[in-house]
Simulated assay, not measured.
Amino acid sequence: MSVNSTIVNTVLGPVPADDLGVVSVHEALLSVLPGAEYAFDVTVDRAGIFETLAEKLRDFRAHGGGTVVDSTGMFHGRDVRLYEALSRATGVHIVASTGQGPEELLGGYFLTPQTNPPSPWPAEKFADLFEREVTEGMVVPRVERRGPAGLITTAVTRAGMTATDESLLRGAARAALATGTALSFRYGRDAVTELDVVLDEKVPADRVAVGGLDRRDAVAAGAPADVVDRGAHVVLDHVGTEDDEHLTDAERAALVAGLVRAGHAGRVLLSAGATGVAEGHPANGVAYSHVLTAFVPLLTAQGVGEDDVRRILRTNPRDLLAVR
């Protein structure tokens, strides 16, 4: 089956992959630090959250955006009913994700379940959890299941991959393989070693996206080139964030241009990593439209042609998200 005839799972149901338009692959809509919703000083105003997110999504659409992928996974504020309403109101396709991680953000249930002796969940249990969110629908706690997840995502501990992180990666990989859904992970310390764990589960490399590769330490280690050499997607997912930890946008544009010149335009993905509304932690204040309004002109100035820009913003994410 060709990619052009496949579908992508959005919160409003399957849509033809070609209908996605410009896609931001690593964003956050409502991002809640696990447990923050129960804090005495946090009030989750769903009506207010809706209005804030709707305004930001309409801005994204007004500048040519078509699809936002909420890549936060489970238990980080994902609100499928809210996302359904937002998609209907704004006309922006929303792809929600399943997955968890890194270890430090897992609830105790997943670290010390009722086994004798207590032990973290093995990969096969994470795989079953994530697979069911694709095949049976995403869980709305204590109520029901809604639409299928359109992406499987996880993250690795920044100090280095733990045993639980490896179980999460392997579980996510097995769920991706079983459902035909793409896998995205934000690397921790060693992007190539972590990618090799996923590939060891026999997931095709072109179904994998590695995020965080616009961090300075990733670039210094040569990780973007190593990841594309293995056939996976490089995700520069902090476009618009300029600090000591990340490249500037000008440096990102130069990195993208270098990858394009090396023949890797088909393996580059871009996103702002924007946080629409945050509870329990600060939002980053970057607009979903930033890639379109501020970054694309930098790519053009670096000599990246219109066809390659279209490939990076439209074709690459379409091919990644299409269910195979």
Rank of each mutant, 00 (worst) to 15 (best):
L213A: 05
S2C: 09
A123C: 00
T135K: 10
P102V: 01
D59Q: 13
R61C: 04
S167G: 08
E144I: 01
E242L: 01
V156Q: 08
E131K: 12
E131T: 00
D41Q: 10
T179A: 05
A322E: 04
T157K: 00
S184M: 09
D244I: 03
R230A: 14
V203D: 01
F295V: 06
D59E: 14
R186M: 05
D19K: 06
E201C: 11
A191C: 04
P141T: 08
V32T: 15
V286K: 13
L57G: 08
E245H: 02
V80H: 06
S97C: 07
G231M: 14
H264Y: 10
D319M: 08
T135Y: 09
K56V: 09
A54K: 10
D243H: 07
R230G: 06
P148E: 10
P120A: 06
A223F: 15
D319E: 06
R142Y: 10
A172C: 04
G276N: 15
E194A: 01
H76E: 02
I49K: 09
G160L: 07
D217Y: 15
T275V: 15
L168C: 11
T98M: 02
V304Y: 08
G77L: 00
T98Q: 02
F60S: 13
Y109I: 11
Y288T: 15
D196E: 12
R158N: 04
L247Q: 08
T67S: 04
A54I: 03
D19R: 12
T248V: 11
E51A: 14
A36Y: 00
V95A: 05
V256N: 07
L12D: 11
T315R: 08
R267K: 14
A287N: 11
A283H: 08
V268M: 05
N9W: 04
P120D: 03
D237R: 09
A178I: 05
P34E: 12
S31V: 11
L168R: 09
P117K: 07
E144N: 01
F185H: 13
S184R: 13
T67V: 12
D196W: 04
S119V: 09
T72H: 06
T248R: 14
V3W: 03
E27K: 07
T193C: 03
P122M: 00
F110R: 03
S31I: 06
E245W: 05
P317F: 03
L106V: 04
G150Y: 12
V256G: 06
R310H: 13
G258M: 01
V260R: 13
A182I: 02
K56L: 14
K202V: 03
R215Y: 04
V234K: 11
G101S: 12
G73A: 06
A250Y: 14
